[in-house]
């Protein structure tokens, strides 16, 4: 038992060090099974826009996870004429707006429980998420399975382009454990050196 725990710790350190070394992969030919968490509202809209530019043949199959109370995300996917996923999973939301602290502990545990089942069935090569809280259980469970060697589980977090000076709570929590942390403003990138800046929404200032 002790040996097993030690082995797990060593493996966890190895994986986290790998993540933090930030070495890009050398060459990849096979497509990656891509799991995307649609966070509802503006988060979903931003995610759809990010997905639109990804090559279909590289990022396939495509799987969506949506909060069970979220009825607008999939409508948005249709409204944008965006690529339809190969499958969709529903997860209980960890926290509704205005929910009390105590009851959010219970609902968070509940959505973690679901996340264990969902991620085990999907075993993604890549997880793409951009907040809010809904993506947290999925991201943590993906990391756990990666440590256990159950999936490749590369985690990509994209901060909302509304974030110019500060990270979201989900962003702060995931900053150190994701493979790629993406922001949209140079002012934010300078504060968080692990992050990479893209100009998908905000053109870079010409200097």
């Amino acid at each position: 038992m002790l040996a097993l725990i030690l082995l797990l710790i060593v493996r966890a350190i190895y994986v986290i060090r790998g993540i933090r070394s930030e070495k890009p992969d050398l060459a990849r030919r096979d497509p990656v099974k891509t799991l995307v968490v649609l966070g509802s509202g503006g988060h979903t809209t931003e995610m759809i826009q990010l997905l639109q530019q990804l090559k279909h043949e590289s990022y396939t199959p495509l799987v969506f996870v949506v909060a069970d109370t979220d009825i607008t995300s999939m409508r948005r996917v249709e409204a944008f004429g965006a690529r339809q996923p190969d499958s969709i999973y529903r997860i209980p939301r960890s926290r509704e707006v205005g929910q009390s602290y105590l009851s959010s502990i219970v609902t968070t545990l509940w959505s973690f429980l679901h996340a264990f089942g969902i991620v085990l069935r999907i075993r993604p090569n890549v997880l793409l998420c951009n907040g809010p809280g809904t993506c947290l259980p999925i991201a943590i469970v993906t990391l756990a399975y990666r440590i256990l060697g159950l999936c490749e589980g590369r985690i990509i977090f994209v901060e909302s382009f509304c974030r110019v000076q500060s990270l979201s709570l989900t962003g702060k929590l995931l900053y150190h454990v994701v493979d790629l942390f993406v922001v949209h403003w140079e002012s934010l990138q300078t504060k968080f050196p692990r992050s990479k800046v893209v100009s998908t929404f905000v053109p870079h200032r010409k200097t």
């Binding site: 992969d25 890549v126 100009s199």
Partner: peptide
């Protein structure tokens, strides 16, 4: 407001994952 480079994110992700 001119908008951004739409494929900026795809280029970053491709290179991170080792896609040509």
């Amino acid at each position: 407001y001119e908008g951004g480079d739409e494929d900026s994110f795809a280029i970053l992700l491709d290179s991170h994952l080792g896609f040509s």
